[in-house]
Every structure is written in C-alpha cells, then in structure tokens.
Amino acid sequence: MKCVEFRGMAESYQAGELPVDTNHEVIAHLDGCAACRGELEARVALRLTLRAAFEHSPTLAPDTRFVADVRSLLTGRSTSQGRFGGRTSWLAMAATLILVVAAGWALGWGPGRPLSRPGGGSAAVSALAAHAAGDHRYCALEHALDEPVISLEEAARRYNPAYASLRDVVAQSAPVREGGLEILGAHWCVFKGQAFGHVIAQRGDHVVSILVAPTSQASAAGSPPSTCQSADGLQVACFDARGHGVFVVSDLAEGDVLQLARSLAPVLQAYLAEA
C-alpha cells in the first residue's frame, strides 16, 4: 500500500468500516510508515478537539432554566422536588466539568511559556513542552481532559506501535525498580490537539507524568535530558528519542525532575530506538 492510498482510506479506517483484509494492509503500512502514523494521529486529535470544543462551548449550551422546564415537562415532576437527585446527576456533572474547564482557562492554565534557556530536546521537542505541562495539569492532576482517554494497547494498534510497551518500559526503569517511583496508570490522551502516550506515576506526594509524543524532527540519536520549561509551579524536563519527544512533568523541585528524566532516559531511548 502506498501513502496516497492510505490517505484515501484513512477516514474509513478510523471509522472501523474497512473490510478485514484492507484493514490488515493499512495496519501493515502504518507499521512501516511514520509519516502516515503521524497523519492518522493528527486526524484523531483533530476529531477529539472538535468534539471537546463542541461539548464545552458556552455559546451552544442550553439555558439551565430551559433544561429544568423541559425536564419537569418530560418527567411530570418538578425538578425542585429533588425526588430523583441521583438521576439529575448527569446534568450536574456536565455543568461541573464545564465549570472546571472554563475556570482552568480563565485562570490562565494551559500552556505556559517556554524557557528561553536552551533545552535538552531539539527545538521541535522543546516546543511541545507547554503542551506536555498542560496535559499533566489537565489529565493527571485535574482529570479534566475533554476526552475519554484510550488505552495504550488500543493506541498502539491504531496509531503508533511505539506506545505498546511504554508502561512496561517505565516499569523497568531504575527509579521504579528501586521504589522511588510508583506507576499509577497509563493511557493515550490528547491535550489541545497534541496526542501523548502518557504514564502517570507518583513520587512521595507528587504526581509525575511521563509523556511521549511522536515528532519527525526529534534527533535520531537522542539527546541528554534537561529542563525545557518551568512555569506555574511545574517543571518539564525533556529529551529526544528516535522519532519522539519525551517529557517528564511534575511539581517536584527542578533538580529532582531533571534527575528523574536522566534515570528514565536510557530505557526509553533504547526502547523508542527499536520501536
């Protein structure tokens, strides 16, 4: 299969509507073609961004008054009776989520400014540091990412095989083996249109995110980690691995985050060089 053929059927592939044998051909092509994997991931991210934008737009939201009126009309009960508090929870939950997200933006969370000092990753990788910090904030800390996350296995199958063993590789790293870092979970998620393989871990009381994003501009040889962003109390250490940028984000002290990145870099760079 050629790239141009893949682009022609990417839409149906994403929708899971291709015949089985064609589906296999697509997967085989994706296995060997970083450009098409990147394109697929960008497409998925765009769709998730649209969905989140739509679901959280205040302009499109129904008035609470209208919602209450129609509800009581449909259920034959006044919502103020509180007879089915449990059932109104979907509304309350949606409202809370919108508030959390809106408040986040109002407070100026989201990407901070990159440091001007030279980082450990290539320019392309450093440029993603703000997104990595945002993802840590929204996904790992606030659990308020707009989209349900996807398992690493599923993401590996559909977008990028490099995600398949991400969690296991981190589990084999020195800090986890020595007990200084505990893995809490792993998945694939999207923040502001940027997709990440995401391992969430804990050191003491501090949550640590290890984020991996594909970028064709990362240096092939890899680079030693260094601090590439420090903003809003979050430190981001980053480094290049073949075809990917890796980010370690936490509110630990800058030196600690950097140290953690240095101890994770060997296994992750070795793994991504193979993937």
């Binding site: 991210a45 765009l46 961004t49 649209l50 934008a53």
Partner: peptide, 17 residues
C-alpha cells in the same frame, strides 16, 4: 491539502467548521 494540521485550538476548528 493532504496534511492534517496539528495543535488546532477549539476556536479554530469551530471557525473552520
């Protein structure tokens, strides 16, 4: 345009739509 752009914001995608 064959390349899907990255880092599109919510406002941009809705405007484009």
């Amino acid at each position: 345009v064959e390349q899907t752009p990255q880092h599109v914001t919510a406002g941009e995608i809705l405007e484009a739509l």
